[in-house]
Amino acid sequence: MDNLIPVNYETEEPTVSARDLHKALNIQSRFSRWFENNKRLFVEGEDYNKCTSNTVVNNGAVRELEDYQITMIMAKHLAMMSRTEKGKEVRDYLINLERAWNSPEQVFARALKMADKTIDKLKSDNVILIEDNERMKPKEIFADAVTASDTSILIGELAKILRQNGVQTGQNKLFEWLRNNGYLIKRKGSDWNMPTQKAMDMDLFEIKETVINNPNGSTKISKTTKVTGKGQQYFINKLLAAS
């Protein structure tokens, strides 16, 4: 059962290609029909994300195909839903891979790798902050006076402050800029528009949690991203310098 289906370990959690799974299960129907019929049981952004994969056609050219990166949980469900011996074989294979992934040795190895990445990010962030400091010196006093507060504010309120001081932006435009520049998570899903780990390490945001009581007696937690006082100074300095 070696290499029954390739697994992508570059993401936070292992994923597999839906096309690779379709091939491994020996599904007779077209990939697009098979996935369309089954995806309704799962949530985009949590269980799967759209992507592309490459295939070589008869003339040797490379052709891009629509594909999906799916979680191991979704892959195991789809394998069992095929109700074939091949499906059971694929499911057992994925279970064994998960066990290896969650073994103490692998968990420790990933922790070391994450620590190395964190150190590299901190070094990189420090260099960026030094460069920003040198570039923004002419406007620092003004920006610090505007944001001399420890109170966290909404991103929409930060957009108003920026607009009042000559930066042509609005709430939606600022959200987009924060996502594109690595401060907010741009991947669609439950954590969309939440701060990235880099931004949290820099103390630019905080997350406010609010418990909402539903009429049926159940509760849910609403999460709101707010800009800290340090974050206000950082973004005002950065965007004023770029304006």
Rank of each mutant, 00 (worst) to 15 (best):
E44G: 01
E44M: 01
E44R: 01
D47G: 10
Y48N: 01
N49S: 11
N49R: 12
C51Q: 05
C51T: 12
C51L: 04
T52R: 14
T52W: 08
S53P: 06
S53I: 05
N54F: 11
V57K: 13
V57H: 08
N59H: 05
G60K: 08
G60F: 00
G60N: 06
V62N: 12
R63W: 01
R63C: 04
L65S: 06
E66I: 12
Q69G: 00
Q69P: 02
I70D: 09
I70H: 07
M72W: 04
I73D: 07
I73L: 00
M74W: 02
A75P: 07
K76F: 08
L78G: 00
M80E: 10
M81T: 05
M81D: 02
M81Q: 04
S82H: 00
S82F: 02
T84S: 06
T84V: 04
T84A: 06
E85D: 15
E85L: 14
K86L: 07
G87A: 09
K88G: 06
K88E: 15
E89V: 11
L94T: 01
I95H: 03
L97Q: 00
E98S: 05
R99L: 05
R99N: 11
W101E: 01
W101F: 03
W101C: 01
S103P: 03
E105Q: 05
Q106S: 07
Q106C: 00
V107Y: 08
V107F: 01
F108A: 04
A109G: 10
A109I: 08
R110W: 09
A111V: 01
A111F: 02
L112G: 12
L112H: 13
K113G: 00
M114W: 11
A115Y: 12
T118P: 03
T118D: 14
T118I: 15
T118G: 00
I119R: 15
I119N: 14
D120H: 15
L122M: 15
L122K: 14
K123D: 14
K123P: 00
S124R: 14
D125L: 06
N126T: 13
I128V: 09
L129S: 10
E131V: 09
D132G: 04
D132R: 08
